Computed example of a mutant assay.
Amino acid sequence: MVDVSADQGPAARTGYRRSAGTPRGEARRRELLERVTEDLATNGLVDFSLRRAARAAGATHKVLLYHFDSADDLLLQAVLRLRDRRIDNAMIAASREPDSRTLASRVRSLWPVLTGEGSRTLDQAIGLAMYDPERYAELGRGASQQYLPSLLALCPEHWDGRRKLEVSEMILAVLRGFLVDHRTSGDTEGITAGFEALIRALEREEAAGP
């Protein structure tokens, strides 16, 4: 699925140093990452390699290994960048929801964003973490670490921390399941029914009071 194994050696053999620490180096690193991220958003993770990333970035693989630890590091950073974009767009959508006072309405507004730009790549990233957890576990762990703070922020302010965390974990797990189903089964009717059940569960949770 992702061919980066052949690209791991050069960094170790030649000792390319990272560019972190200088404004110019950081600016160049961000530029390269943005270009690779755009390629992933458009073309997904299938057949991703350092050479493909170099073509997308308009650079050589040696340049990329100067700015990133390895091909896996570049892949991880690009996936994190895509998730940041999706989270930003989701929070904007939640704030624009006409009835944004309730958690249920906020969560309802997330679905179009979760299945929008870059969703195929991010779903593939979770699949990669499941396929090869020893190598790509951070792709899965990173998802929870990135999404949970935003879900916690959507919960009612008067809830205590434990309740917010429990409900947020439930939302994350259920939506992740729906996204996998959306990508693999195409059962739109079943996903819609399940999503509406989630919304009703959140409405009951809020109605239960503090």
Rank of each mutant, 00 (worst) to 15 (best):
172 L>P: 02
127 G>Q: 13
82 L>N: 07
65 L>P: 04
80 L>W: 06
117 E>W: 04
181 D>C: 11
6 A>P: 02
103 L>C: 11
119 S>C: 09
91 M>A: 09
178 F>P: 00
76 L>C: 07
45 L>Y: 08
17 R>E: 08
161 G>R: 11
153 A>K: 13
158 H>N: 11
4 V>Y: 07
49 S>N: 11
66 Y>A: 05
25 G>E: 01
87 I>T: 05
154 L>R: 04
172 L>T: 08
168 S>I: 06
73 D>S: 03
49 S>W: 11
96 R>M: 10
186 G>E: 05
83 R>W: 12
210 P>I: 07
194 G>I: 03
181 D>H: 07
41 A>T: 15
150 S>C: 03
187 D>P: 00
143 A>H: 14
24 R>D: 12
187 D>F: 00
56 A>V: 01
54 A>M: 00
210 P>D: 08
123 D>Q: 09
8 Q>C: 08
198 L>E: 01
94 A>G: 07
24 R>M: 09
82 L>D: 06
40 L>P: 09
178 F>T: 02
52 R>I: 14
149 P>V: 05
85 R>N: 01
5 S>C: 01
194 G>M: 04
146 Q>D: 15
90 A>D: 04
153 A>C: 07
137 A>Q: 05
148 L>C: 02
23 P>S: 12
65 L>S: 00
120 R>N: 05
161 G>K: 09
70 S>P: 12
113 V>P: 06
155 C>N: 09
205 E>G: 14
186 G>D: 05
200 R>I: 05
187 D>Y: 00
81 R>D: 11
52 R>E: 15
28 R>M: 12
12 A>G: 05
150 S>N: 02
52 R>M: 10
8 Q>V: 07
80 L>V: 01
13 R>G: 02
174 V>W: 07
6 A>G: 14
63 V>F: 02
107 V>E: 03
143 A>G: 10
179 L>T: 05
62 K>F: 03
6 A>Q: 10
140 G>S: 03
75 L>M: 13
7 D>W: 10
61 H>I: 03
41 A>W: 09
29 R>H: 14
43 N>F: 08
96 R>T: 07
151 L>D: 01
